Computed example of a mutant assay.
Amino acid sequence: MPRPHCPRCSRPLERCLCALIPRLDSRTRVLILQHPSEVRHALNTARLAALGLCNAELRVGERFDDLPALLAQPGYRACLLFPGEAAQPLAQLAAENGDSALLLVVPDGTWRKARKLLHLNPQLAALPRVTLPEGLHSRYRLRKAPMPGALSTIEAVVHALDIVEAPARFDALLRPFEALIEGQIAAMGEETFRRNHQRD
């Protein structure tokens, strides 16, 4: 018999994260477009990010027929958080944007799946692209060989909001993410974690 899950955070009830999920206001609107393969992922940080931000929306799919309406938010300038030749640093776009608020569109999936989302949704691919600063490191300590800049979706959103809405900080959004990691380490045992994942 399957274990009961929390209908909000989707975690098993005995490991519900809802008490750790904040409700943070942001001037920036965050639209997360999640590839369906990520929904059942053990972390699913996109869901945690959307739950923790008042001005955020999570959509799941490969093709988004209502994308024009999602992007045409009055008072917002849409941009895509994704690397590319013409991508500019997010801080630069935010400075140029003046008083207008940003609609930050964040694809959620592996690089291959994220590129597929762009391919299937040409209006998404046509958005101006922005990137985070180089050299950021993920707090996800269970990756065998974490690449610099390979952030989880929730980490990317936090870094982006910290840039756009400085001096406001959004670290509280990472509390359930940290708890998830600690839970995974506890489940595998400290010795196994040190042997397989801890770096010198």
Rank of each mutant, 00 (worst) to 15 (best):
P68M: 11
S37F: 14
T45C: 02
V105Y: 08
L103T: 15
Q73I: 13
E38C: 11
A50G: 06
L80A: 08
W111N: 06
G109P: 02
L51R: 00
L70Q: 01
P89E: 04
K113N: 15
T45K: 00
L90S: 12
L67D: 06
P74K: 03
E85P: 13
A91R: 10
A114F: 02
D66Y: 01
A50Y: 00
E57P: 06
P68L: 07
A49M: 00
A86D: 12
L43T: 13
N44E: 02
G109Y: 01
P107A: 09
A46T: 05
D108R: 04
L43A: 15
R112C: 14
L117F: 01
T45I: 11
Q92W: 09
L80G: 07
Q73A: 14
K113Y: 15
C79H: 04
W111V: 15
R112E: 11
A95Q: 11
E85C: 13
Y76C: 10
L53S: 03
S100L: 12
F64K: 04
L81K: 03
Y76E: 08
L58K: 06
L51S: 00
P107Y: 02
N97E: 08
K116T: 09
R40A: 15
F82W: 03
L53K: 00
A91C: 12
V39A: 11
L117N: 06
I32A: 04
N97A: 15
K113E: 15
V39G: 09
E57G: 10
A86H: 11
G52A: 05
L93W: 05
L67H: 01
Q92P: 06
A86K: 08
W111A: 11
P36I: 07
E96C: 15
T110A: 12
A87T: 05
V106I: 14
G98T: 07
G52M: 02
A114R: 04
R115A: 11
L31K: 04
G61I: 06
A86M: 09
K116D: 03
D65E: 13
K113R: 14
V105T: 12
L104T: 14
A94F: 02
Q88M: 13
A101M: 09
L102W: 05
D66W: 03
A95E: 09
D99L: 14
E57Q: 07
G98N: 04
A69M: 12
F64L: 14
L43F: 15
A78K: 06
N55W: 00
